[in-house]
Design a protein around this nucleic acid. Sequence first.
RNA 1: GUGGCCGUAGCUCAAUGGUAGAGUCCCAGAUUGUGAUUCUGGUUGUUGCGGGUUCGAGUCCCGUCGGUCACCCCA
Length: 423
Amino acid sequence: MQLLPGFRDFFPDDCARRNYILETWRTVARRYGFVEYDGPVLEPMALYEKKSGGELVGQLFDFTDKGDRHVAMRPEMTPTLARMVAARERDFKKPLKWFCVPQFFRYEKQQRGRLREFYQLNCDIIGEASPAADAELIAVLIDLLRACALGERDFVVRLSSRTAWQEFFAQVGGRPEDEYEFFQIVDKAERLPPEKTDAALAKFGLTAQQVLAFMHSKAATAELAPILADLTARGLGGFVEIDYAIVRGLAYYTGVVFEVFDRGKNERALAGGGRYDKLLSLMSDGQTDLPALGFGMGDVVLANLIHDVPAAQAQLHAWLARERAVDVYVVIAHETRRPEALALVQRLRDAGLRADFPLATAKLGKQFQTAEHLGARHAVLVGDEWPQVKVKTLATRAERLASPDELLSLLTPPKIPVILSGA
RNA sequence: GUGGCCGUAGCUCAAUGGUAGAGUCCCAGAUUGUGAUUCUGGUUGUUGCGGGUUCGAGUCCCGUCGGUCACCCCA
């Protein structure tokens, strides 16, 4: 049996790599005061039809359940979040700073950086309209990547705004109802030949040259300036660039939008998000009307970039080594001492140490080999010396005798790993 | 969904249309109280799958599945 396309088995090593990313996400999000929430993996199909309509339906994993309900595996979090917020909005002080690390499912053809199943960090701030919220959200985004030992030379936040394009469009006489179509053209302007863009813009009386000129003007609008100032005050200004080429495909974005790219442009976007001030009202039929903004960051592209950047890879490997290492491997030199060894293993484990030992009779050399293979810091040899044991520090090959009581105070529990911040 | 390239041992890869191989990994021994290296031996295959051409197909052709890259899309 083979895997379904776009789905992954997580063997222990893969699982550890995944956990590195998820734990880093959770650590940094909490550092910013975001709290974790979650929702169901399976939702009524109608939840997604309401917001997006036909186009996205083809990219859903959907089916009819045994109760004849049309359901879908979740492809994104925003509809669920909107429902949850609308349901109990009054229970929470504003602004809400919520994050989630859901697994998503999208029926798309897989390629580099895109699978049919993936994890995505979602951070959202709800109930705060000021640019301070935009800056806070972008700051946590930057620090999430810095925590993976990625720096200014590795990635950049491209900051833009739908508002800026709305003003541009209004100035040249565009009608608000045509805005979305105009945004779609702008979104593709950089990738398509100018003639095609010209043709598409003709109905608005615009040229590709006009649009591209505005796109590449790096001047911050009155909306973006305070956000940049805020980030600069935090010392994070170097991670952000104004780039009006960022429009984002979705209809619901209302103001600030941004995407994160690797500097080498070898990968797809690492993250993307923006303001969606009208969406909660839309999703709740006007029941809840709160300004909101958020972003999503997937695990697949991030893992690729970590692999690409030596410093990030080194930090990952250091983390993996700490993660998998046992503290003590108990070597049973004589099978007659197995009961004493079992008692010792139990005491070590009760003390919170990661301890392992051979389940089957094995030669001494083999046991040390296993200890080495497991990354054990110490081997404890139970045999002739009993009631004392021989403690060996594998890295230095130093040995000493100790009683089981001494052993326990000798081997202090490991410190909780600290995620180092890369500049 | 459309198109290009690729599918051989767990992994990395060889094999002019003519006997399916190497390295690595894993297991055991050399080494019965100590980890590396080395040496010896061993396990591992429907050559993705199904047809076709041929005396003979891993190799050529068709289909299919999977991977990958680009397009589309990107919540």
